[in-house]
Design a protein around this nucleic acid. Sequence first.
DNA 1: TCAGCTGGTCTAAACGCTAGACCATTTGAA
DNA 2: TTCAAATGGTCTAGCGTTTAGACCAGCTGA
Lengths: 248, 248
Amino acid sequence: MDNPAFAFEKALRNKTKKDILTEKLVEMIQTGLLRDGDVLPSERELAQLFEVSRETVRGALSQLAAYGLISVSHGSKTRIRAGDEVLAGFSRSHPDGGDKVNRFDIGSVFESRIVVEAAIARRAAINIDVEGIQKLEKLIEAQSRLFDSPVHFQLSDQNFHKLISEYANNEILLGYAEELYAYGLNVRRQVLLEKGAIERSFHEHVHIVEALKRGDPDAAERAMLTHLDSVYRTTQEKLASSSHGEAG
Amino acid sequence: MDNPAFAFEKALRNKTKKDILTEKLVEMIQTGLLRDGDVLPSERELAQLFEVSRETVRGALSQLAAYGLISVSHGSKTRIRAGDEVLAGFSRSHPDGGDKVNRFDIGSVFESRIVVEAAIARRAAINIDVEGIQKLEKLIEAQSRLFDSPVHFQLSDQNFHKLISEYANNEILLGYAEELYAYGLNVRRQVLLEKGAIERSFHEHVHIVEALKRGDPDAAERAMLTHLDSVYRTTQEKLASSSHGEAG
DNA sequence: TCAGCTGGTCTAAACGCTAGACCATTTGAA
DNA sequence: TTCAAATGGTCTAGCGTTTAGACCAGCTGA
């Protein structure tokens, strides 16, 4: 072992298809794409969709069942169980699992998000075209009707940030932005349940779009920073208040 | 298949450990961490380092041998073959494969580096302590004696940026910075062969350290931007001039 | 020269995944 | 109510990957 290039190498980790599918389904539940009471396609259909064997699907489903995230019953279709208690219990038992928020501290995530998304906002203000503005305004318009649907608003919010990121014309920054956004998904969902949280985010979105429409990089950056700061603050408050009754 | 959440699902893909290891080694060669003529640790050592069996290591090595990236000979240690012709041939046969330098255009890489390292410089100026300054000054002092050793200077340069990144107190930004730095390694190596390139980088490093020592975030950011701009320009020039005799 | 490295080969066993068959239960339309 | 069709539950045989270990064959350096 003379070669310094190989100092401190880590082990290779290989995920099984079963685990990949499990994670994927968990994520679909956590993001609200699958909601409480939804029926899952049959095991045979899932096997076809994901191009794996039915046994592999069953492996993933049995893990979900162990987590209490689905209810399986012989003869009838499997249903999603994603009531708030179920999700809360799952998060508690999987602190590092899918909960990427805690892998890095929230402060670092938001510091990084501020750096990346500020740059994105500047570049988007310069590069965005009429079509992009129209798409954003359509999103905004849809969001104005989602004040009572946190899950739908969150999905739309994700699209909003993603769309802006795409107009920064930089795949690397886009990738970072998506990654950092994903880190906060879980907590964010809780925050949006708070009274007025969605309205505030909505108005901040409006300001961002206005700045982009004017093609004003400074204003776009400022609007984005205001938005992220507001998101950061409410997230911190939520974490502080919810950490009372929890294990760690 | 009533559930719209499952429209357009894609197949799950599962990588073998052998392929993961192959990619990892290819990347180490492409980024210059492993250089032409370097000896690889023995198969048994690699197996221990990556916590896989020796047969798996052999599988990965036989792929590298098929690509011509290593030369294996019974009884003696395996050596890296990364001469310019070998790498060029490999890139040609693996257009999307692993060549991360070309996967993103240089412009995007530097745009991102500017964003990330500017933020890092600001935070480092605030957080760095006496010990950190001393380490940096020692590095600078060493670099002043490496004007005729491009390879050594590049290694020292990598440490220089890494050390500053660590004082930003943000693991995420640090990870991004290292990733972006690695993207440019190959080309950078060529650039440093140019007359005066090392001296220029050295002086820019001095300015960065001075700003950090004063604890002045604005100055640190400016010095870092000046440095990156200079690196970017010379890299572009090198690419423009060397693209004449190449395949594509 | 030869002990101790190196790469080359082989085996038996464990594990993940697959395809398919068959059973038991539920569902919904006849 | 009845019963065919769809569902989840179980099992088998087989394939590919990975592992641990043994042994062989070639190189290197004291």
